[in-house]
């Protein structure tokens, strides 16, 4: 492993990750490990109690309407199946653009998230239907396991960007992380970030369900942020548990603390297991009370989901019309 980090050009005027690493006193394996292990611990009982307490917030009336629209605009509408087809991806793109064709007041979603080979189809279809503003996110780096050579991971990323992805959802090497090879995980993120260059936003998937402990979640969050992540994301959606409230809480606390220390605002993306409007609103409460209202913006908070969107739409109709419609009144992709 290289002893000195490569200088990486960052998009959006972000300090280069090597400068950041220097700020955090990180220059090699040893200093990175020391840094991560001196982060304050997380008390499991305490964080779970706090998350449970915030889950009792009661969001009603105009706050609820606002939250539903905000949640819709934060959805990374996702399909990540072996059975994905061009038809499926196109219909997902239409849904992303006009979630409810009968109500043009519904905002479009945050992004469409697909596998590498579907990026071009999604991009060209979105452009064709006049939805140029909706980015395509590609899962990358041998998603979901990340078990491939670095060369393959870089190529995977470059392919997606060349096909039109402007957001890259990469996975970290959990095996390396759990073995304590933090620098290896770090270097991979730096390299993928370099590949993204100024062309794509980088979301780093921690796969918290495999990291298991809350201390690991905090360490992985910091590792990813210092290495150059624009977003830290909980999960691939292929592992349970995924975006549990305490995990999201810890990641939100991490981006807040990182911002206070560096002035750099990193986004958070929970993914997996958020299926109902109630779940989504609980996520927004966490954002509001842990990271702060500055994160209540699709630029800094996304929700990786598929079924969630229809539930949000049905809640929205209910708030508008005063009664629950059947699920036949929202489209199935």
């Amino acid at each position: 492993m290289a002893k000195v980090l490569r200088k990486v050009e960052m998009n959006q005027g972000r300090t280069s990750s090597s400068d950041l690493a220097t700020d955090f006193g990180i220059s090699d394996d040893r200093s990175l490990e020391l840094f991560l292990k001196t982060l304050p611990g997380v008390d499991q009982v305490g964080v779970e109690a706090r998350a449970a307490e915030l889950a009792t917030r009661s969001i009603k009336k105009e706050s609820k309407s606002w939250a539903i629209d905000m949640a819709i605009s934060m959805v990374d509408l996702t399909t990540l199946e072996g059975a994905d087809t061009e038809g499926k991806v196109r219909s997902l793109c239409n849904k992303a653009h006009r979630p409810d064709p009968t109500d043009l007041g519904v905002p479009h979603v945050g992004a469409v998230c697909v596998y590498n080979d579907m990026v071009g189809i999604a991009r060209s279809h979105l452009d064709a239907i006049g939805a140029k503003e909706i980015p395509v996110a590609a899962v990358s780096t041998a998603f979901p396991s990340g078990r491939a050579s670095m060369e393959v991971k870089l190529r995977d990323t470059r392919d997606a960007i060349e096909a039109g992805a402007s957001e890259i959802d990469m996975v970290i090497d959990r095996g390396a992380f759990l073995s304590g090879y933090y620098k290896s995980v770090f270097d991979e993120i730096v390299a993928i970030k370099k590949e993204c260059g100024g062309r794509a936003h980088l979301k780093v998937i921690l796969e918290t369900g495999e990291l298991v402990t809350y201390d690991n979640v905090r360490r992985a969050s910091y590792l990813a942020m210092i290495a150059g992540a624009d977003f830290i994301k909980t999960s691939t959606g292929k592992v349970t548990p995924a975006a549990t409230a305490p995990v999201v809480l810890i990641m939100l606390q991490a981006v807040r603390d990182f911002f206070d220390r560096t002035g750099i605002q990193i986004g958070v993306k929970p993914a997996g297991g958020i299926r109902t409007s109630k779940d989504a609103i609980k996520q927004l409460v966490l954002v509001n009370e842990i990271a702060g209202p500055e994160w209540l913006n699709p630029r800094y908070f996304r929700i990786g989901a598929s079924a969630l969107l229809n539930d949000l739409l049905m809640q929205r109709m209910k708030m508008r019309d005063g009664y629950y419609a059947s699920s036949n009144y929202v489209s199935v992709e």
Partner: peptide
């Protein structure tokens, strides 16, 4: 103003 000021419940 925080747009997510919770409505009275």
């Amino acid at each position: 103003v925080n747009p997510f000021a919770y409505a009275p419940a």
